[in-house]
Design a protein around this nucleic acid. Sequence first.
DNA 1: CGCCAAAATTGCGCCGGCGCAAAGACGCCA
DNA 2: TGGCGTCTTTGCGCCGGCGCAATTTTGGCG
Lengths: 240, 240
Amino acid sequence: MKNNARDEVYARHLRGVELFQGLTAQVRAAIAQEASLRSVQAGNFFFHQGDPATVLYVLIEGRVKFTQVTPEGHSVLLRVSGPGEMFGAVAALGDAYHPATGQAVTPCKALGWSSEGINALMEQYPRLALNAIRFLAGRVSEFQDRYRELATQRVERRVAHALLRLMHQIGREAPGGTQIDLAMSRQDIAEMTGTTLFTASRLLNRWEAEGIISTTRAVILVRRPNLLAAIAEETPPPTL
Amino acid sequence: MKNNARDEVYARHLRGVELFQGLTAQVRAAIAQEASLRSVQAGNFFFHQGDPATVLYVLIEGRVKFTQVTPEGHSVLLRVSGPGEMFGAVAALGDAYHPATGQAVTPCKALGWSSEGINALMEQYPRLALNAIRFLAGRVSEFQDRYRELATQRVERRVAHALLRLMHQIGREAPGGTQIDLAMSRQDIAEMTGTTLFTASRLLNRWEAEGIISTTRAVILVRRPNLLAAIAEETPPPTL
DNA sequence: CGCCAAAATTGCGCCGGCGCAAAGACGCCA
DNA sequence: TGGCGTCTTTGCGCCGGCGCAATTTTGGCG
């Protein structure tokens, strides 16, 4: 077994990544050899919506947000990814073009494999392909759920759900509750939940008054997750 | 090459299926050997939401609709599948449970592979796995788009989009336009687009009066697809 | 051919949530 | 520490689309 230092470092990052579960260290090392590292400054872009897709990434560090923009200029925040997550997959493995824009919100490092490279690796290591399938199946399921949520629930519950999702995904324990470890402006919240900046602001204020959360500018601390969950699940007034 | 008659018949169906593209006839035959055929009467179910997933299907004939029901009892129509499409994949390949209910709307025949069986086949024939990845990637992309649609567009445009999607997917040329080859009640339209029966009814009536479509009960004939597309794309009044 | 249940229509009232504008609060940078 | 730009709050008005109930239409079926 002879790897140079670079591959050694890459391979270390692959151990905990969902996409590489069940592979031997040797195989991970071989896969790592094909990767290249890309660093992106906060605010800069991995790719833009509509770009031809050439690379599949696995995020090593930082946070990336994915947005789609409608022809009329409204943008929708699809998700925020953290370390260990694969992204660019939908495009690199399927469609030829990125369906969304990926922007670094903190300084990021990601490993990248070319479309052809990753396809070849998957032919060679079927387990890799099965992991990718698992991942994509989960993603489909998630978006079906969110679609249903958007179709049937009113704004209040959607926002509550979104906060809970964020809390679980990128929450960090803090005195007094769980802090969402990423600046999320009211605008961002609105774009995640299909509402407007104003409505989101009103909701968060009310919840702050009720002691459910507390906010400082774009930083949100969830104080009473159970109350938030109650709002998310409950069916308070008779509605659609 | 020695296949019995049954496998011969199955294999024939697999030729045009997206999931089996790029495989040799021999491989397709081998895969067919593992399949079992399931027939479901109109109105009966392939599986229900929440059922443990054990089988991945490829639809041979008929139409299947997939719905999710919210805890409160509202249902959402996620999609309608036709011959050649794979379904049950999200569950059989990823999650252990079906995220939606699959109901036959016409008499259906489908080939099924057990979860373990299809996983083994994918290990053996990586191309199969890559095809599945492509399929799932497309599905993710589709739902991201529909999510954005639901989040940003008003009802009128969503319904227009839905009709166009149906028209392309399961349309059949007919005198005077393209007919959507499946009974779609107003209720179904509403569940597809996140609105209510009433609003859907009003919209379809207006469009019928304008000569864009014509309907008889649950059967919809699209007369002026271009006008429908105009509604779907255009941004008539200033909106969200 | 006529009855019945399911689907579809339509009128009316109401309200959640958007749209905008103006004011206020931070946080940043020099 | 002062100024500036961005993010946020808040009041007010309005309207798209929901909710319901009553009625009509339609197709299926005996």
